[in-house]
Amino acid sequence: MSNNPFFTVDKISKSFGGLQALKELSFHVNKGEIYSVIGPNGAGKSTLFNCINGIYKPDTGSVKIQGQEITGLRPDQVAAHKISRTFQNIELFSNMTTMDNILLGRHMHMKTGVFSASAMLWKNSFSAKDETEHRRKVDEIIDFLDLQASRNKLVSQLPYGIQKIAELGRALATEPELLLLDEPAAGLTNEEREDLIFWIRDIRDELGITIILIEHNIQMVSEISDRIIAINFGKKLVEGTVQEVTNNPDVVRAYLGAD
């Protein structure tokens, strides 16, 4: 397995003008792992996610999933490689309901194009079955994440914590194999965070989805991660198990010490 890891990032660099956000950063993630990325603000964590899912093109280096090169692809092409993500500042379709937002996550899986409207007219048509199937999948996700009460509300009217969960739901609807979560617990109450930890475990255990997590809450990271990478100034400080990383003096100085 270690010869052929599920997901690899190999020496990627990215700079914005004079600021080098990532410097030859490398790591790999095994299938079914919960892998956390920690580091102080401005360490390059979100830039890393943006380089993986195609919002930025890395200057050099390569990103591969299951041996396939995805470096420099557009976000919609990366999505087709079964990589999904959430954002630090929620990116939802604010004028749509929770249901429609999650349904949009099914977009790639919808077969019927222009004629899906016929679903409204002919109940037994192929596209009607297709549509029903997608709505059923969305309802499964809504049940899974306890979003029933928000199902038909506009997401802009939902509390912050629920919006974060709705965004997670949309990411799940794409049926990813790799899920990138950018500070999913930021701004959540303690209770919501407990739920989130529970769901993240379930996503891995029941759906078999590999997870890369950016998180500031070190307690949460220690609780659910299999391995952790600590980065600072766009470079790898240390990588390893929870014990190895949280006890590393460099990490304590750069990150934990700053708390």
């Binding site: 919609d76 990116e91 194009g113 409204m120």
Partner: peptide
């Protein structure tokens, strides 16, 4: 309102970034 492509267009208009990560090509 009622087609897959139309939905993709509305999604892209509301939040192009979110549309793209859900596999909708903004191009």
């Amino acid at each position: 309102e009622h087609t897959k492509t139309g939905l993709a267009m509305r999604a892209s208009q509301q939040n192009s970034m979110a549309a793209r990560i859900n596999g909708i090509s903004s191009n």
